[in-house]
Design a protein around this nucleic acid. Structure first.
Length: 848
RNA sequence: GCCCUCGUGGUGAAAUUGGUAGACACAAAGGACUUAAAAUCCUUGCCGCUUGCGGAGUGCCAGUUCGAGUCUGGCCGAGGGCACCA
C-alpha cells in the first residue's frame, strides 16, 4: 500500500488554492460575515514556531467558519516599519526597503507552505506609501480634531536605540526592545491625546465579553481610574504661592495629615531655584528611576522647606512642606498630603523625618487609641480623632462625607484621576511613517496639504549618522507649502501607530482615496476573532481601541468603537535549553543523545547541560526552524502537532517525539482512508451498523463544541479516539451506505486541521458522493437513543457501572440494580435509608 | 507591596452545569511477532492480599454535600501583570 506523500499532495493543493484564489472574499450581503484576524507579523526574515501556532489557530477557525457558511475574511499583511530593518541595513549597508521586501517575499512563501486559508489579494504592508499615505491623512484629521498635539516634555530616552519610548514601552526602567536603561530627557514631542478617552476605554472593557479577563484587568489597571478629591492647603508664610493643591483618595484622613510633599518639578520649586542644597536634592531625584540600584533601593527622600501649610479642616493645625522624591509631577497635581497613620509610604517618610503621626481610623471594635509603630493601618474601620467625621465607617461612608464637607466649605472638590498618560508618538528614526507636518521660518506648525501626501521617505540614504538620519537629509527636509519655505518634521511615527488601524485597511485594501471605505467597514467590522500573543495586552490592543475612538470622535463615522469583538491570546512555544561547558548556549541542532537522557555536543562530544524549557528565542538558541520541520514532516503534521499537546492559551512544549507522533498519525489516517475506499469500492454487503452513525454523530457534537471554545488539543485527542474506533470497526463487514455517510462526515471534521490531507481524500471520495463544503449537522434524534454508562454508588462509593438506554427511569434502574450480583453483596441485610438518582448520571444508595 | 492566574501519574494533559479521576498522547519497563534489528501490536499510576477484589489518592488543612479535581475559608508553592499613582 502506498505511503502518504505529503510533498506531492501538499504542493498540489497549495497550487490549486493559489491559482483558483480559493480564499478570496468579497462582500456578500446575503451571508453573515466572520472576520478572523491574527496579529500580523514583523517581517524579520523567517517565520518562527510562534507564528506557526498563531496562524494555525486562526486558520482552523477560519476554515471551520467557512464550512459553517459564513463569509469569512481572513487576511494577512506585514507590520513592516521598525528598527530591525534599520539596524540590519546599517550593518550590511543596505536599503531597509530592500531588506524588508526580501524578507516579506521569503516569509510569504513560508506562510503559504503552511496551507493557510488567507485571502492574499488583500495583502498590505505598512511601509508602503499606499498604506502610510492614509495614516498621514488620519494624523492630520486627528490634529484637526484636537487629538494630536506637540509639547515639550520629559521623555523616556533609550540611549541604545537613540529614540524616545512611550510609557508602555518601558519595562522595569528599560527599553522594551533594546533592554537599555531608559534616561529622562526633555524634548519636543508629538502626542496622541489618548487620555481624553480614559473613561471610554475603561467602560468599553465591560462589553468585551469575549476577551480574556486577564487582559481586561491589565488594561483596567493601566488606565488606573481613582476616585478622590482635590484639596487646597493654604500656605502660612509665602507671598508668591498662597495655596498648594493636592490630590487624595483618602480625604477622610485629613485630620491625620502630617506633612505636604511636592514633586521637585512642582511650580513651587521656583522659590528654591537659587538654593544649592535644593538643586543637589533635585539632581538626586532625577537620577532615581534611571539606575537599577536606585530602583531597587527606592528610598524615600525629602527636602524640608521653610514653608508651613495649614490643615484646611482646622487651620490651627500646621504641617511642614517637603519636596519628596516619590511624588510625581505628572500624576494628580504633583503634590500630596501625608497621611502617616494610614499609608505605609507616608509613615516611613514621617518616621524618617520625625514628624507627628496621628491615627484617625481604627479597626471596628478596637478599644482606646490605636498605636501605630512601624506599620500603617490601611484596613477598614471607624473614624476617630476627627471631630465632625468621628464615628463614620471608613472608607465607604467617610470618604464621601469628607468630600461633601470639603465641597461645602469650598476647600476643594471631587476629582477623578487617571494613571493613563498621553501616547508619545515621535520617534527619532528613519524607517517609520513620516509625520505630515512642517515648520515655517517662525517655527509655526504647518500641515502638509492633502494633495502633497504622502510624504514619502527619502530612499538610499546614509543611515550611519548620529541621531536621526532624516535630520541629515537637507534636500528632503526643505519643502515649499503654499509658496512658503518650510522644513519637514524629521521625527517619524511610532510603529504602533501603523498597527492601530491595519484591521480597517484589510476591509478596503485597494481604496486609493481613503484608508477605508465606510460600506466595507460597516459590513466587515468588528473583527470577530482576533488572535495573538498576550504581550500586546496593553500596547497594541489599547492603541487600537483608542484609534477607533479617535476616528469616530465628533463624526461618529461608523458607529463602532471596539475593533475586536473576540480576543484570544495564545501561549508560547517552548523548548529545552542547552549549554556547553563554557556556559554558551547550544541549539538543538548542535547536540545529540544516545538514550534521550544525556546530551552531548556534536562538536566536541562533551556533555551538555540541559536547562529548563523556555519560550523559543534566538538568544537562547532553543529555536526550531518551522521550514525544516515542514520539509521533514509536512504542513498538516506540523499543524496537527502544534495544536495537539496543550490548550492553545497555554505554553506548549516542542518535542521531536510528539512531532513524529503526529506524522505517524497522518500516515495511519491515510491507511484508514485507503481501508474505507477499498471497502466502499468492493461494494460489500454488511451490517447496517447503527452504532457507527451514533458514534460519528456524537463526535460531531463534541468537536463542534470544542471548536467553539478553542479546545483544539481535546479535538486532536478526539481524532485519535476516532481512529482507534474505526480502525477496529472496519475489520467487520459494514454496509456501503453507512461507510459513505460516516466517512464523509469524518473527513469534514478533519478538514480545518489537516486541509491538504482531507482535500486529497475528498477528491478520491468524490466518486461515491458529491462533496459540499458544509460543516456536518448534529442529528438530535440520534442523540436521544444513545446508551449511557450509569454509575451505581453505595454510600457514595462507586461499585458498578451499568450500560443502560438513555433516560432510563429510577424504577427501571432499581430493578437492574437489585438483580445485580455485585451490588447484592453490598445491600444484603441492609436497610436503604436514602436514594439519590440523577438521570443518565448516577444512582447513590445510602444503606445501613 | 498590590492585582490576577494556576497547582491532577515519569511528562503534556482530559474530566459540559458538583456525579466513573487520569480520556488521548509522549516516555520508560515488560511481553508478542522476527535469525536479529527497525516497524507494529499488547500490558503497566500507587498500596494491600496470587487472579479478582479491597483501600488510599487531584499541593496542604478544615468545611458544605448523599457525593468535591470542581464550591467556601485558611495555609504552602509556581507563574504573570503593575509598582513610589497619593
Amino acid at each position: 500500500m502506498d505511503r502518504y506523500n505529503f510533498n506531492l499532495i501538499e504542493e498540489k493543493w497549495q497550487k490549486s488554492w493559489e491559482i483558483n484564489h480559493s480564499y478570496k472574499t468579497q462582500i456578500d450581503k446575503n451571508k453573515k460575515k466572520f472576520y478572523v484576524l491574527e496579529m500580523f507579523p514583523y517581517p524579520s526574515g523567517k517565520i518562527h514556531m510562534g507564528h506557526v501556532r498563531n496562524y494555525t489557530i486562526g486558520d482552523v477557525l477560519a476554515r471551520y467558519k467557512l464550512m459553517q457558511g459564513f463569509n469569512v475574511l481572513h487576511p494577512m499583511g506585514w507590520d513592516s516599519f521598525g528598527m530591525p530593518a534599520e539596524n540590519a541595513a546599517k550593518q550590511n549597508n543596505l536599503d531597509p526597503k530592500i531588506w524588508t521586501e526580501k524578507n516579506i517575499e521569503i516569509m510569504k512563501k513560508q506562510l503559504k507552505r503552511l496551507g493557510l486559508s488567507i485571502d492574499w489579494d488583500r495583502e498590505i504592508s505598512t511601509c508602503s506609501p499606499d498604506y502610510y499615505k492614509h495614516q498621514q491623512k488620519f494624523f492630520l484629521e486627528l490634529y484637526d480634531k484636537g487629538l494630536v498635539y506637540r509639547k515639550e516634555n520629559y521623555v523616556n530616552w533609550d540611549p541604545v536605540d537613540q529614540t524616545v519610548l512611550a510609557n508602555e514601552q518601558v519595562i522595569d526602567g528599560k527599553g522594551w526592545r533594546s533592554g537599555a536603561l531608559v534616561e529622562r530627557k526633555k524634548l519636543n514631542q508629538w502626542f496622541f491625546n489618548i487620555s481624553q478617552f480614559s473613561d471610554e476605554l475603561l467602560d468599553g472593557l465591560d462589553n468585551l465579553d469575549k476577551w480574556p479577563r486577564k487582559v481586561k484587568i491589565m488594561q483596567q489597571n493601566w488606565i488606573g481610574k481613582s476616585f478622590g478629591c482635590e484639596i487646597n492647603f493654604k500656605l502660612e508664610n509665602c507671598e508668591k504661592f498662597k495655596e498648594i493643591k493636592i490630590f487624595t483618595t483618602r480625604p477622610d484622613t485629613l485630620f491625620g495629615c502630617s506633612f505636604l510633599a511636592l514633586s521637585v518639578d512642582h511650580p513651587v520649586a521656583e522659590l528654591f531655584k537659587d538654593d544649592p542644597s535644593f538643586q543637589k536634592f533635585k539632581d538626586n531625584c532625577t537620577k532615581t528611576g534611571t539606575t537599577e540600584e536606585a530602583l531597587a533601593q527606592a528610598e524615600k527622600l525629602g527636602f524640608k522647606t521653610s514653608l508651613v501649610a495649614k490643615n484646611p479642616f482646622d487651620e490651627t493645625i500646621k504641617v511642614p512642606v517637603f519636596f519628596a522624591n516619590f511624588v510625581l509631577m505628572d500624576y494628580g497635581f504633583g503634590a500630596i498630603f501625608g497621611s502617616a497613620g494610614h499609608d505605609q509610604r507616608d509613615l516611613d517618610f514621617a518616621r524618617k523625618y520625625k514628624l507627628d503621626v496621628l491615627p484617625v481610623v481604627k479597626p471596628f471594635g478596637h478599644k482606646g487609641d490605636l498605636v501605630i509603630e512601624n506599620e500603617a493601618y490601611t484596613g477598614p474601620g471607624v473614624i476617630y480623632n476627627s471631630k465632625f467625621l468621628d464615628g463614620l465607617k471608613a472608607p465607604e461612608e467617610s470618604v464621601l462625607e469628607a468630600i461633601k464637607i470639603i465641597e461645602n466649605k469650598k476647600l476643594g472638590k471631587k476629582k477623578i484621576n487617571f494613571r493613563l498618560k498621553d501616547w508619545g508618538i515621535s520617534r527619532q528614526r528613519y524607517w517609520g511613517c513620516p509625520i505630515p507636518i512642517a515648520y515655517d521660518d517662525q517655527n509655526n506648525i504647518v500641515k502638509v496639504p492633502e494633495k502633497m501626501l504622502p510624504v514619502t521617505l527619502p530612499e538610499k540614504i546614509n543611515l550611519n549618522t548620529k541621531g536621526n538620519p532624516l535630520d541629515h537629509q537637507k534636500e528632503w527636509v526643505e519643502i515649499k507649502i503654499n509658496e512658503k519655505k518650510c522644513k519637514l518634521e524629521t521625527d517619524t511615527l511610532d510603529t504602533f501607530v501603523d498597527s492601530s488601524w491595519y484591521f480597517l485597511r484589510f476591509c478596503s485594501p485597494q481604496n486609493k482615496n481613503y484608508g477605508y471605505d465606510i460600506d466595507d467597514i460597516k459590513y466587515w467590522m468588528p473583527v470577530d476573532q482576533y488572535i495573538g500573543g498576550v504581550e500586546h495586552a496593553i500596547l497594541h490592543l489599547l492603541y487600537s481601541r483608542f484609534f477607533m475612538q479617535a476616528l469616530n470622535y465628533k463624526d461618529d463615522v461608523f458607529n463602532l468603537t471596539e475593533p475586536f469583538d473576540g480576543l484570544f491570546t495564545q501561549g508560547m512555544v517552548c523548548h529545552e535549553t542547552y549549554k556547553d561547558e563554557n556556559n554558551n548556549w547550544l541549539s538543538p541542532d548542535e547536540i545529540f543523545s544516545k538514550d534521550g537522557k544525556e546530551f552531548f555536543s556534536i562538536e566536541n562530544n562533551k556533555k551538555v547541560q540541559v536547562g529548563p524549557s523556555e519560550s523559543m528565542s534566538k538568544s537562547k538558541k532553543n529555536t526550531i526552524d518551522p521550514e525544516k520541520i515542514i520539509n521533514n514532516y509536512g504542513a498538516d503534521a506540523v499543524r496537527l502537532f502544534i495544536m495537539s499537546d496543550s490548550p492553545p492559551e497555554k505554553d506548549v512544549q516542542w518535542s521531536t517525539e510528539g512531532m513524529e507522533g503526529s506524522y505517524k498519525f497522518i500516515q495511519k489516517l491515510w491507511l484508514l482512508h485507503k481501508k474505507f475506499m477499498e471497502k466502499i469500492d468492493n461494494n460489500e454487503i454488511g451490517n447496517f451498523d447503527e452504532e457507527i452513525t451514533k458514534y460519528t454523530n456524537s463526535l460531531i457534537l463534541k468537536i463542534t463544541n470544542n471548536l467553539e471554545n478553542f479546545r483544539y488539543n481535546v479535538i486532536i485527542a478526539n481524532f485519535y479516539e476516532m481512529y482507534n474506533f474505526f480502525n477496529k470497526k472496519l475489520n467487520s463487514p459494514i454496509s456501503k451506505e453507512i461507510l459513505i455517510n460516516n466517512y464523509y462526515n469524518i473527513l469534514k471534521l478533519l478538514n480545518p486541521f489537516i486541509p491538504h490531507f482531507t482535500s486529497e481524500c475528498f477528491e478520491e471520495f468524490s466518486k461515491f458522493k458529491k462533496i459540499d463544503n458544509s460543516w456536518p449537522e448534529v442529528n438530535k434524534e440520534l442523540l436521544k437513543n444513545e446508551t449511557v454508562n450509569l454509575v451505581i454508588q453505595i454510600n457514595g462509593k462507586k461499585r458498578e457501572i451499568l450500560s443502560v438506554k438513555k433516560d432510563i427511569s429510577e424504577n427501571e434502574l432499581l430493578k437492574m440494580v437489585n438483580s445485580n450480583e455485585k451490588i447484592k453483596n453490598f445491600i444484603i441485610n441492609k436497610k436503604i435509608m436514602k436514594k439519590i438518582f440523577v438521570p443518565n448520571k448516577i444512582i447513590n444508595l445510602i444503606v445501613k
